[in-house]
Simulated scan of single mutants.
Amino acid sequence: MKITNIQQAKSQLSKLIEAVLQGEDVIISKAGKPLVKIIPYTANSEPRKPGYWKGKVTMAEDFDTLPESIINSFTGVDE
């Protein structure tokens, strides 16, 4: 695993990318705390299909109805 700070990552980005492509884990840190992990990009094996969830998800009949108690909680009105 390779750990580098942001400044080093800026100046050695090409080398870090190459290390990731060779299978090495690369972590970029700031003030000694890990912030991000560089990982190789992988394309989805299957493209998205619009309508995939059609007929599989249902909404409750009262989905758009907000209970009075919830409204009161946001408006500060006592019940």
Score class of each variant (00 low, 15 high):
residue 17 I to D: 07
residue 19 A to R: 05
residue 19 A to Y: 01
residue 20 V to T: 04
residue 21 L to I: 02
residue 21 L to Y: 14
residue 21 L to N: 14
residue 23 G to M: 05
residue 24 E to T: 09
residue 24 E to N: 08
residue 25 D to N: 13
residue 26 V to G: 02
residue 26 V to W: 01
residue 26 V to F: 00
residue 29 S to H: 10
residue 30 K to G: 06
residue 31 A to C: 00
residue 32 G to H: 05
residue 33 K to M: 06
residue 33 K to I: 11
residue 34 P to I: 01
residue 34 P to Y: 01
residue 34 P to K: 03
residue 34 P to S: 05
residue 35 L to I: 06
residue 35 L to P: 06
residue 38 I to A: 00
residue 38 I to L: 15
residue 39 I to Y: 04
residue 41 Y to R: 06
residue 41 Y to T: 08
residue 41 Y to D: 02
residue 43 A to Q: 13
residue 46 E to N: 15
residue 46 E to G: 04
residue 47 P to M: 05
residue 48 R to D: 10
residue 48 R to G: 07
residue 49 K to M: 07
residue 49 K to D: 00
residue 49 K to V: 13
residue 50 P to V: 00
residue 50 P to R: 03
residue 52 Y to Q: 11
residue 52 Y to S: 11
residue 52 Y to V: 13
residue 53 W to I: 08
residue 53 W to K: 09
residue 53 W to G: 01
residue 54 K to V: 12
residue 56 K to Q: 09
residue 56 K to G: 03
residue 57 V to K: 08
residue 57 V to R: 07
residue 57 V to I: 14
residue 58 T to Q: 10
residue 58 T to D: 05
residue 58 T to S: 15
residue 59 M to Q: 13
residue 59 M to H: 14
residue 59 M to W: 09
residue 59 M to K: 14
residue 60 A to R: 14
residue 61 E to V: 07
residue 61 E to T: 11
residue 61 E to S: 10
residue 62 D to P: 07
residue 63 F to D: 07
residue 64 D to N: 12
residue 64 D to P: 03
residue 65 T to V: 13
residue 65 T to I: 15
residue 67 P to S: 00
residue 67 P to A: 00
residue 68 E to Y: 07
residue 68 E to L: 15
residue 68 E to Q: 14
residue 69 S to H: 11
residue 69 S to M: 08
residue 71 I to W: 12
residue 72 N to R: 10
residue 73 S to R: 15
residue 73 S to I: 13
residue 74 F to L: 15
residue 75 T to P: 02
residue 75 T to D: 05
residue 76 G to A: 00
residue 76 G to D: 00
residue 76 G to S: 03
residue 77 V to E: 15
residue 77 V to Q: 12
residue 77 V to S: 09
residue 78 D to L: 11
